[in-house]
Write a protein that binds this DNA or RNA. Structure first.
Length: 487
RNA sequence: GGCCCCGUCGUCUAGCGGCCUAGGACGCCGCCCUCUCAAGGCGGUAACGCCGGUUCAAAUCCGGUCGGGGCUACCA
C-alpha cells in the first residue's frame, strides 16, 4: 500500500520552525517511501485563523522546497483540502455518528462546564467532562434539540476500556479510557472541532501514517477511537500508523517559543539563511543519517531517511550550529548563484539599483565576500564601501587604527605610491604597497590597517588589494586624501 | 495534582551486550596559515543523571529514583 502522509498546520500563526520540521519529516517520509505528501489546512478555528498565516505557511514550505502532491493550492482527488470548505461533510459524519450511538448531544453550557471543572480540580478529580449528558435517552435528546436547545456533540468514549497503539517513534503507548473524557466533536455553533475534522479527513483521504508533534500524543487515543467509529459509521476501513515527533526546545530546555528569539521560519528566511541549510539543520534535529556525517544533501536524505530511525528525545534548537551550517552552504554556492542571491540585498542596502559597471564590480569582489559570510544579510555591509560616495568611518575602528604612529606614514606612502602606479589591478597595487611598507619599515599587518579604514571605513573588509582594485583609482586616492587630512 | 513522553560532551548526535581507555559535528580554548575578518589545517576541553538488578560482560536489557517536557478547552 502506498504511503499517504499529510502535513496539516493550522493557520493561526506564522509557520513555526518546529512545525516546519514536522512538515519536513512528513515530506522526507513520503519521498523516501515513494509515497504521497498531502498538504491540508486545518482551519477550523475561526477565531484565530488568518489568511496572512495561511499564505505564510505555503510560502515557507515552497521556500524550503517541500513540494506536495495533493492539497491546498495544487488540488487532488479529495479536494478541497481546506477544512473550512468541508463543513457540510463533517456535519454529515457527525449525524451518522450520533445515529450510530457513537456520539451524543451535550446540553451543558460553557459556564456550567467551567464551574464543574473548577470544583473537580479542587477536589482532586480529573477536570475533564463528567459525561452527564451521555445518560440522556436518545429520544429525549432529539426532542430537546428539536425544541431549539443549544447542544454540542460529544464523542462517547467506550468505557471501560484501554487504547494501546504502537507509535513508530515511541513504541507501545497505552491510555486507560478512564483518563480520556468525552470530548466535543461539534461545537454548538455547528463548527466541528479539530479532533473531528482531522479524523474525518484522515479517513476520507486514506491517510496511512500520521507524523506529528508530541503535543498531540495524548490526543491520539481520541483520534484512534474516533477514526474507528467514523470508518464504521461510513462502512470503510482505515488503518493509521502514528509517529509522534519530539518537540523542539529553546536553549533553556523549555518548549521553543518567542522568548527564545525567532521561532517563525520567515524570520530565518529574512535573516539570511539558505533553505538548503535550514532543511539540513532541521532534518538533523532528531534524525541522523548514521555515521559521522553532518552536511547531507537533500537527495542523500531522501535516500537514507527512515521514520523508524527518528529519535524520541527532544532537541534543542541551536542557532549557532545553524549559522555555521549556513556558512557551509553559502560557501558551496556557485559564484554566479551567490551573486544573484545577494545582489538584491546589496541594492536594497544601497537604496538604488546598481548600474552595469557596479554590478561587474560586485561580481568581482563577491567570491571574496562569499568565503567570509555566514548569513546573506551580512553581505551588504561588507561591500557598502563600493557603492557610497563617502564612507562613514566606524568610530572604534578609527580610534583604534588612525591614532597609531604608522597611520600617517602609511597613508601618505600609499598615496604617493598609488598615484605613481601605471596600472590599476590588485597585483600592481599589492606590489606597490608592500614595497612601500617595506621601505618604511612598517609591518604589513600594521601598515595596511590605516589604508583599510581610509578606504572602507572599517577595520574589517574583504582583502584590501582587491578592494582597492575594484573601487577604482580615483575613488581610492580620494579616500586616502580625505582620511590623511583628518589625522 | 492526574495522565503520558523523554534522559550519551554546554548543544546536535554515533552507539542497537563485548569492537567504548565512548566516535563525529557545533561551540569554546590553543597553535599554524594570514593584509583585517573569515575560511582552512593541527591539537585540546567536555558526556553515558543517580541507585539497584539481569549477565562472564551494560551507555546498550529490567526496575526504581531524580530531573526535564507535553497534555489536561465547545484551541490546534
Amino acid at each position: 500500500m502506498t504511503v499517504r502522509v499529510r502535513f496539516a498546520p493550522s493557520p493561526t500563526g506564522y509557520l513555526h520552525i518546529g512545525n516546519a520540521r514536522t512538515g519536513l519529516y512528513n515530506w522526507l517520509m513520503a519521498r523516501a517511501e515513494g509515497g504521497v505528501f498531502i498538504l491540508r489546512s486545518d482551519d477550523t478555528d475561526q477565531e484565530r485563523g488568518r489568511d496572512e498565516y495561511y499564505d505564510d505557511i505555503i510560502d515557507g514550505l515552497r521556500w524550503l522546497g517541500l513540494d506536495w502532491d495533493e492539497g491546498i493550492e495544487v488540488g487532488g482527488p479529495h479536494a478541497p483540502y481546506k477544512q473550512s470548505q468541508r463543513l457540510d461533510r463533517y456535519r454529515e459524519v457527525v449525524t451518522a455518528l450520533v445515529e450510530a450511538g457513537a456520539a451524543y448531544r451535550c446540553f451543558c453550557t460553557p459556564a456550567e462546564l467551567e464551574e464543574r471543572r473548577q470544583v473537580a480540580q479542587q477536589e482532586g478529580r480529573p477536570p475533564g467532562y463528567d459525561g452527564r449528558c451521555r445518560a440522556i435517552a436518545p429520544a429525549d435528546s432529539a426532542s430537546r434539540a428539536g425544541g431549539g436547545e443549544a447542544a454540542s456533540i460529544r464523542f462517547a468514549i467506550p468505557r471501560p476500556g484501554e487504547t494501546v497503539f504502537d507509535d513508530v517513534v515511541r513504541g507501545e503507548v497505552r491510555f486507560e479510557h478512564a483518563n480520556v473524557d468525552d470530548f466535543v466533536i461539534l461545537r454548538s455553533s455547528g463548527v466541528p472541532t479539530y479532533h473531528l475534522a482531522s479524523s474525518v479527513d484522515d479517513v476520507d483521504f486514506g491517510i496511512t501514517h500520521v507524523v506529528r508533534g508530541e503535543d498531540l500524543l495524548s490526543s491520539t487515543p481520541k483520534h484512534i477511537l474516533l477514526g474507528g467509529a467514523i470508518a464504521d459509521a461510513l462502512g470503510v476501513t482505515s488503518d493509521i500508523t502514528y509517529a509522534h515527533l519530539s518537540l523542539l526546545m529553546g536553549p533553556d530546555g523549555k518548549k521553543l517559543s518567542k522568548r527564545h528569539g525567532d521561532t517563525s521560519l520567515r524570520a530565518y528566511r529574512e535573516g539570511g539563511y539558505l533553505p538548503e541549510a535550514m532543511v539540513n539543520y532541521l532534518a538533523l534535529l532528531g534524525w541522523s543519517p548514521g555515521g559521522d556525517e553532518t552536511v547531507v544533501s537533500r537527495a542523500e536524505m531522501v535516500k537514507r531517511f527512515d521514520i523508524d530511525d527518528v529519535l524520541k528525545n527532544p532537541a534543542i534548537f541551536d542557532v549557532e550550529k545553524l549559522e555555521w551550517m549556513n556558512g557551509v552552504y553559502i560557501r558551496d554556492l556557485g559564484a554566479d548563484e551567490f551573486v544573484s542571491r545577494t545582489l538584491p540585498l546589496v541594492e536594497a542596502d544601497a537604496g538604488r539599483a546598481l548600474d552595469d559597471a557596479e554590478q561587474a564590480a560586485y561580481a568581482t569582489i563577491a567570491p571574496l565576500v562569499q568565503e567570509r559570510t555566514k548569513l546573506l544579510t551580512e553581505v551588504p555591509a561588507q561591500v557598502r564601501f563600493l557603492f557610497v560616495d563617502e564612507v562613514g568611518y566606524d568610530e572604534s575602528a578609527w580610534d583604534k587604527v588612525m591614532t597609531k604612529p604608522e597611520a600617517r606614514p602609511s597613508l601618505e606612502g600609499a598615496l604617493e605610491q598609488l598615484e605613481a602606479v601605471s596600472a590599476w589591478d590588485h597585483a600592481t597595487i599589492e606590489t606597490a604597497l608592500r614595497s612601500m611598507l617595506d621601505e618604511l619599515g612598517i609591518k604589513v599587518g600594521k601598515g595596511l590597517q590605516p589604508i583599510r579604514v581610509a578606504v572602507t571605513g572599517s577595520s574589517v573588509s574583504p582583502p584590501l588589494f582587491e578592494s582597492l582594485a575594484v573601487l577604482g583609482r580615483d575613488r581610492a586616492l580620494a579616500r586616502l586624501h580625505t582620511a590623511a587630512g583628518l589625522l
